[in-house]
Design a protein around this nucleic acid. Structure first.
Length: 291
DNA sequence: AATCATGTCAACCGCACGCGA
DNA sequence: TTCGCGTGCGGTTGACATGAT
């Protein structure tokens, strides 16, 4: 026996709220207070689901909401809190009066991620980007962060944008210095019994964002054109943030291989490079296809 | 001027959790 | 202990605005 739906969907409005609906909701809550969202719509004369009412109130109509842009102080606070708490938006929001979890989540995805990339930091782990890449390429038995424990993310794992949004939260003591390159990834590999990365080959495929992208471009036909365009868009944005759009990134340069590990580097970089320790050259470049 | 790409954010969806019967 | 309900949370989507070509 499944759960009963939270509302009768055929009798409820969806989408943007009208001014009249807003007024009804505000007036009702002013009179009766918050609570019992399930019964609220009927009592307030709204053709909305209770969850929708709650969301509208919390994210938009609540009188104590702070409007306007985030300040620099708020930015830094969010970054610090995210470092401590991961994607626990409600906990982060609790520390920022007048801001909602949804607002912070959106702000994170649209602004702060880019900010961290510009600082050379991975927004999920808050570690230097080079370290994350090095870990990926040198640990041949481990899947990369794309092998997340998040069920929904796994459902969508073919989507590069989804992976991008739902990497494993940082460990509590990440961060400043002295971290090891392998900790997070090996842990996630051990924990993720459902991942497809039990074989070395699969792990290698996952370890290559370029190959991931190729999979993305080979999406089955039922996937909507709009979705494909969204994914391509996310790819472009991501690589713009890396500052290497369209050109790809030489892993040899990013991994900072030792000079005694020389190998032919396919790019024109001046650094002493080597092939990754995975015997093949699959990972020489990570970067977008020509999209 | 038209079209496409990109950025933003409100809203939705499904799952997880806590609580009371 | 189990089950159902109400609620909260995090990820994702879609609509709209704006900028670029």
């Amino acid at each position: 026996m499944g759960r009963s739906p939270c509302c009768e969907k055929e009798h409820t409005n969806k989408g943007a709220w009208t001014k009249e609906e807003d007024e009804r909701l505000v007036n009702y809550i002013k009179l009766h207070g918050e609570g019992c969202w399930r019964s609220l719509p009927k009592a307030a004369g709204l053709l909305r689901c209770g969850k929708s009412c709650r969301l509208r109130w919390i994210n938009y109509l609540r009188p104590d909401l702070k409007r306007g842009n985030f300040t620099e102080e708020e930015d830094e606070l969010i970054i610090n809190l995210h470092g401590l708490l991961g994607n626990k938006w409600s906990l982060i929001a609790a520390r920022l009066p007048g801001r909602t979890d949804n607002e912070i989540k959106n702000y994170w995805n649209t602004h702060i991620k880019r900010k961290l990339y510009n600082r050379g930091l991975d927004p999920q782990t808050h570690r230097p980007l080079n370290a994350a890449v090095a870990t990926t390429a040198t640990n041949t038995s481990a899947p990369v962060v794309a092998a997340t424990n998040n069920k929904k993310a796994n459902d969508d794992s073919i989507s590069s944008s989804s992976n991008f949004h739902s990497m494993t939260p940082p460990s509590p003591n990440f961060g400043i210095s002295g971290y090891t390159n392998t900790k997070i990834i090996t842990d996630s590999a051990a924990e993720d019994s459902n991942s497809n990365s039990s074989s070395g080959v699969t792990a290698e495929v996952e370890a290559s964002p370029q190959l991931n992208l190729e999979l993305s471009l080979g999406l089955p036909s039922q996937v909507s054109l709009k979705r494909q365009r969204r994914e391509q868009r996310h790819q472009r944005v991501l690589y713009q943030w890396y500052g290497n759009a369209r050109q790809g990134v030489c892993l040899c340069c990013n991994l900072k291989f030792q000079s005694n590990q020389t190998a032919t580097c396919g790019c024109n970089c001046k650094t002493m490079g080597t092939a990754p320790t995975t015997d093949n050259n699959l990972y020489r470049f990570y970067g977008p296809l020509d999209i």
